[in-house]
Nucleic acid binder design. Structure first.
Lengths: 183, 183
DNA sequence: TAGCGCATGTAACGCGTTACATGATTAC
DNA sequence: GTAATCATGTAACGCGTTACATGCGCTA
C-alpha cells in the first residue's frame, strides 16, 4: 500500500497532473517505485475521495486541459505519519535467477544472451545515474537535508547497478569460459 | 506469471508437497522468489487442473497425510520452453527509498534507526549465504552445470547483501555525522 | 495443558498489468 | 498525412497479502 505514499511524496514539491506524475515515475522516484499511468489515475481518484488531495482543472492554450493535484493538510499529515512507520523489504523477484536454477545444455546459450543484455541495461542505468549525481549531487554534505535523502536513494541506485554489472561479468566468465562438467 | 514456474523449478529435483514447497520458498529459491503457503496451494491446484502437475496422496504414520506433486511430461516441456523466453526485470520496490525522498528533521532519527536495522538484516543474510557457499559451492568450476546456475544465483545474493550493507554504512555516515544544512 | 511443528485449505480484498478507448496539437 | 506528445480515463483479469479455519501428534 505505498503507491499512494509515493504519489504524495512526488507532490511535496508542488502540484502535478496525472500525466506529470506518470512521467515523474519514469525517472527519479520511479527508479525505486514504478507505476503506470493507469494505476496513477486510479490512485489519484481514491486519494482525492479520501480528502488527501485536492484536484483543480487547469485550462491550457493549444493543449488539452489538465487536472492538477495538490496535497491537502490531512494529506501532508498522513504522509508525515507514514514516514515514521516500519518499512518492510519485499524480496526482489527476478525471473532470471529462477531460470538459472534450471540451467542446462538447452538454455545455456539463451541465458548467456540474457545476461549480456542485462549487462548493457545496467550499464545504461549506471551512466544515467552517474550523470545525475555529477550534475546535482556532487557534494552530498553541502546539500539541504531533503536533498540528502534523495542523494542517498540515488547512491543506492548507483551501487545496485554497479553490483549487478559485476555479477553479470562473473556469470559470463563462468558460463562462457568454464569447461563443462557432466550433470 | 512466474510463481508457477518457480514451483515447477522446485519440483525438478523430485516430488514435493505444498508444505515442503512452502518451506523451500523460505530458503533457496525463496531468496529470489518469495511465496506464501496460501499462494502455493492455490497455484498447485491450478497447475494440476492444467495438467502440468500430478497429485498423489501419501499416508504417513504419526503425521497428517500429505499430497505430493510431481511434474508431468507437459509440465516439463512448458518449463523448458519458459526458460527460453525473455526475462524482464521488474524494478525493486522499497519503501525506504520513498521515505528518504521526504527526509526531514522529524523523521531523520527514525530513518537512521531503520537503516541500522536493515544493516543487521543484510548482515544476517550475508552470513547465511556465505555459509551455504562455503559448504556447497566452494569450487564453482567443478560443479555440475545445473548447480553452476544455482551457484550464480547465490553469488548474486551475496553481492546484493554486501552492496546494501555498504550503502547502509554510507547513509549512516552522512545522516549521523554530517552537519545539518538548512532546507 | 500449552505451544510448536506438520499439513491443508477458503475468502476477501487490494495491488498491478494489459488491453481498450478517445481526442487535440505539433513537428516532420 | 502520419507519427509523436499531451492528456485522461475504463474494464478485466491475475497476482499477492491478510485473515480466518481446522486438526493431529509430540514435547516441555
Amino acid at each position: 500500500m505505498a503507491l499512494s505514499h509515493a504519489i504524495a511524496t512526488a507532490l511535496l514539491d508542488g502540484p502535478l497532473s496525472g500525466y506529470d506524475l506518470a512521467r515523474r515515475f519514469e525517472t527519479s522516484l520511479g527508479f525505486f517505485w514504478a507505476a503506470s499511468h493507469q494505476q496513477i489515475y486510479q490512485e489519484l481518484k481514491k486519494l482525492t475521495q479520501a480528502g488527501q488531495l485536492e484536484a483543480r482543472r487547469v485550462e491550457q492554450s493549444g493543449r488539452p486541459d489538465k487536472v492538477e493535484y495538490k496535497l491537502t493538510e490531512p494529506g501532508h499529515r498522513a504522509l508525515a505519519a507514514w514516514a515514521l512507520t516500519e518499512s518492510r523489504r519485499r524480496p526482489a523477484k527476478d525471473d532470471l535467477f529462477v531460470k538459472l536454477y534450471q540451467l542446462n545444455e538447452q538454455n545455456r546459450a539463451h541465458l548467456v544472451r540474457e545476461i549480456k543484455a542485462r549487462l548493457a541495461q545496467h550499464q545504461a542505468k549506471a551512466e544515467l545515474y552517474e550523470k545525475i549525481r555529477a550534475h546535482h549531487y556532487a557534494d552530498p554534505e553541502a546539500l539541504s537535508q531533503r536533498r540528502q535523502g534523495v542523494y542517498l536513494a540515488l547512491a543506492a541506485g548507483i551501487r545496485y547497478e554497479a553490483m549487478f554489472m559485476d555479477w553479470c561479468r562473473e556469470a559470463l566468465e563462468l558460463l562462457d569460459h568454464s569447461p563443462l562438467q557432466p550433470d
